[in-house]
Design a protein around this nucleic acid. Structure first.
Length: 488
RNA sequence: GUUCCCUUCGUCUAGAGGCCCAGGACAUCGCCCUUUCACGGCGAAGACACGGGUUCGACUCCCGUAGGGAACGCCA
């Protein structure tokens, strides 16, 4: 009961980290932090068909991006073992699984099964047709070990199956999020422990690893709920200590189906590319299935760590709402100090080829002007593009403002006033002065005044306040643009 | 088919028998701020899946029904 808290995230490296996986990782991380425990990263790469080294890098990269740093497991830089309960990649633990499988065989709770795929398929069909649960019923279940040894030696391939107790007993799981869950033992058939190629199967290595790595709590997705029965059987047969489990709800798409590729962006990496902040991602994901005791919504990781507890975990599935994610991203965006925000925005600006001043003070001012209209980092591109030294063009939406009788005169006057300025940049006051001068000189006011000027400055009839925008732009640039607007 | 899980505003959720003719957030719609756009402020509309119990009293407990999901793999 008073075991030290050790939790783990155990992805199988088959692609980028999915938002569902990210939430699982996050909850484990938060729990470890909250309880002063250890967070461990284990790689479940026993499926040779689907696991790749590249995907492992992707998963690790995504976890790092989210800031879910682990204390033990695969080292994020060197990929070597970090901690004394390794190896942390299942593909490197094969001997261990083999040893335990042999123990089970020796004790009669597991056996070699020589059924072929065809035989199993056929049996499944028949059972289904008969309205029975499609569980394998292996004729090798009670074969004399000596005889199976002989078959094995003669080169026949076999899997190792767990011998599920035939006496109908009940397994009770005290789930941290679902309460008491009871499983009849005949809910599952004799499941595979070791594949014929020698690789262990999830339910086997997961149980062994969690026990050997002294994992105290397992938070994982709900689809593993019925796997827990199998794992409990393995624990029991081997006399290993069972961790506590918490089965998290599934994350759904807008159509209430399990979130998948066809719902659009579902991996953390995609959200990173779209300009989402890891802070916002964590915060948003945390709130799909957990809530702060005081109902706080926008939180830092530290706040979440402090407040996290399993009794506020919600068993019902949640729909992933990108609109709210956006709002949350905007909230976090505005909390960042400008030096930090600039460093996040910079890659997006560079990517778009924008040419902007290097001066931190300029960047600071620019961000105060633009950040209230940014929801994602990527939004900065269109916001900064109009004041970038490159890429100026008069937008189609500006045609109206340019068509008024007085517009040409307004822009001419504006241009001459800018040209008369002494410094490289106009101050806010100078801009207001100039605008007033245009007003009296040309005899226009209201939108006939500021719309043409706005177009002469940014090429569009709408945007941030001119008195904030103009001081961000070099005098020469303003003149050049006024001319371009006149040429329209 | 069998077993298991889930079900409060459109969405994320609060609610652990009277505090709830159900609270917050996003979205929506108004108004205010604003010589544009955002930000911000204020306000409106909007839900206990259904049916039975238990109880003086049920969103909260029990049982059904319906709907959704998961598992029954040499995937995890």
């Amino acid at each position: 009961m008073s075991r030290p808290v050790r939790v783990r995230f155990a992805p199988s490296p088959t692609g980028y980290l999915h938002v569902g996986g990210a939430r699982t990782a996050l909850y484990n991380f938060l729990y470890a932090k909250n309880r002063g425990g250890k967070f461990i990263l284990r790689i479940e790469d026993t499926d040779l068909e689907r696991s790749t080294e590249e995907a492992m890098h992707m998963q690790i990269g995504d976890l790092k991006w989210l800031g879910l740093n682990w204390d033990e497991g695969v080292n994020p830089e060197t990929l070597e073992d970090m901690g004394d309960k390794g190896p942390y990649r299942q593909s490197q633990r094969l001997e261990i699984y083999k040893e335990y499988a042999e123990k089970l065989i020796a004790s009669g709770t597991a056996y070699y099964c020589f059924m072929t795929d065809e035989e199993i398929d056929k049996q499944r069909e028949e059972l289904k047709a008969a309205g029975k649960p499609p569980q394998v019923q292996s004729p090798y279940r009670d074969m004399d070990p000596a005889e199976s040894k002989k078959k094995l030696d003669s080169g026949e391939s076999a899997v190792v199956r767990f011998k599920v107790p035939k006496d109908k007993s009940e397994f009770v799981l005290k789930d941290l999020v679902r309460g008491e869950v009871k499983f009849p033992s005949d809910m599952v058939g004799d499941f595979v422990l070791i594949r014929s190629n020698g690789m262990p199967v999830y339910n086997f290595c997961c149980a062994i690893d969690d026990a050997l790595m002294e994992i105290s709590h397992v938070f994982r997705a709900e689809e593993h709920l019925s796997n827990t029965l199998r794992q409990m059987m393995v624990y029991e047969a081997l006399g290993l200590e069972v961790p506590e489990f918490g089965h998290l709800s599934i994350i759904l798409g807008a159509d209430k189906q399990k979130l998948s590729k066809r719902h659009g962006a579902t991996s953390c990496n995609q959200y990173r590319e779209l300009g989402y902040l890891p802070e916002a991602m964590n915060n948003f994901i945390a709130l799909m299935g957990w809530s702060h005791p005081e109902g706080k919504e926008v939180m830092t990781s530290e706040e979440m760590q402090k407040a996290f507890s399993t009794d506020r975990l919600n068993p019902a599935s949640a729909v992933f709402d990108e609109v709210k994610l956006k709002w949350m991203n905007a909230s976090h965006l505005r909390e960042l100090d400008h030096a930090e925000l600039w460093s996040r925005v910079k890659p997006f600006l560079d990517e778009a080829g924008l040419e902007l001043p290097e001066d931190p003070q300029w960047q600071d001012r620019a961000l105060s002007v633009f950040k209230t209209s940014m929801e994602t980092l990527a939004d900065a591109v269109e916001l900064f593009r109009p004041i970038s030294a490159k890429n100026y063009k008069v937008d189609d939406t500006a045609a109206d403002a340019l068509s008024w009788d007085s517009s040409k005169a307004v822009i001419e006057k504006w241009k001459s006033l800018v040209a008369a300025a002494a410094e490289d940049y106009l101050s806010e006051e100078q801009f207001v002065e100039a605008q007033n001068a245009v007003k009296t000189e040309c005899g226009v006011k209201g939108k006939h005044l500021f719309m043409p000027i706005r177009v002469a400055v940014i090429g569009k009839p709408q945007g941030a306040e001119l008195k904030h925008l103009v001081p961000l732009m070099k005098k020469d640039l303003l003149i050049e643009r006024a001319q371009l607007a006149l040429n329209q």
